[in-house]
Design a protein around this nucleic acid. Structure first.
Lengths: 111, 111
DNA sequence: CAAACATACAACCAACTGGTTTCATGTCAA
DNA sequence: TTGACATGAAACCAGTTGGTTGTATGTTTG
């Protein structure tokens, strides 16, 4: 079994990567279609290196993958990683639902 | 209309709050039921002040709300905030779906 | 009222983050 | 093969974060 800290590392990386508006914007673009790093960089008012680092953060989190095409690196978004984040939120929602059920059971008992 | 940077601020706060394992754990506990800050703090190997700051971060992001009960502050998780994060991920998924549809249309055209 | 308890807040510190500039490497095209 | 282009990576800096300790404030209880 994968130890909980490894899962936590993954969750840290995923939420951390999403906790920056530039990275969320990059992710939107590469989910819509492949883009080279220079292509992406041209869209933002910051250095190429800064954008390249953002892409690297997204890649380390598994939200983006790159494939080489000539001298370009084409990045595209990984929707399964997005879904894995959604499933973590579903788990939270399930915990909450359990609480509500327990409350309902109590109210039932009282009446 | 709410300007995009305000929405981005909110998204930054939400993802940022979730990007820490201690805070995710606190959130799980308070989604399952109300807990005082000291109660929460007793569960972790760090100072009370550290845990109190984590709760404050969650509260600023709107993931947790507190109500006073005597000398205690009872924190509980806000499932609607969790859902608002899930809906951001749904938006990402929708962007991706659009890309796939465009690809399918192209393939259709070719055949 | 006094003592104990629950919380909040401030000051401080080390580590991390998001940006910069500069340099190195790899690939294409003339 | 040389020059231009695309990327990666290092060194650096300011601001933020996650932790600490200490102090102040409000609330309950004896």
């Amino acid at each position: 079994m994968t130890s909980p800290t490894v899962l936590d590392d993954r969750a840290d990386a995923l939420f951390g990567a999403l906790a920056d508006r530039t990275r969320r914007d990059i992710l939107r673009r590469v989910l819509a279609g492949e883009h080279s790093v220079t292509d992406l960089a041209s869209a933002y008012d910051m250095s190429f290196a800064a954008v390249q680092k953002h892409v690297a953060v997204l890649e380390r989190a598994g939200l983006v993958h790159k494939r080489r095409s000539g001298r370009q690196q084409l990045a595209s978004g990984d929707v399964t990683a997005v879904r894995s984040v959604a499933s973590m939120l579903d788990d939270l929602e399930a915990i909450w639902r359990g609480r509500i059920e327990r409350i309902d059971a109590l109210l039932e008992q009282e009446s």
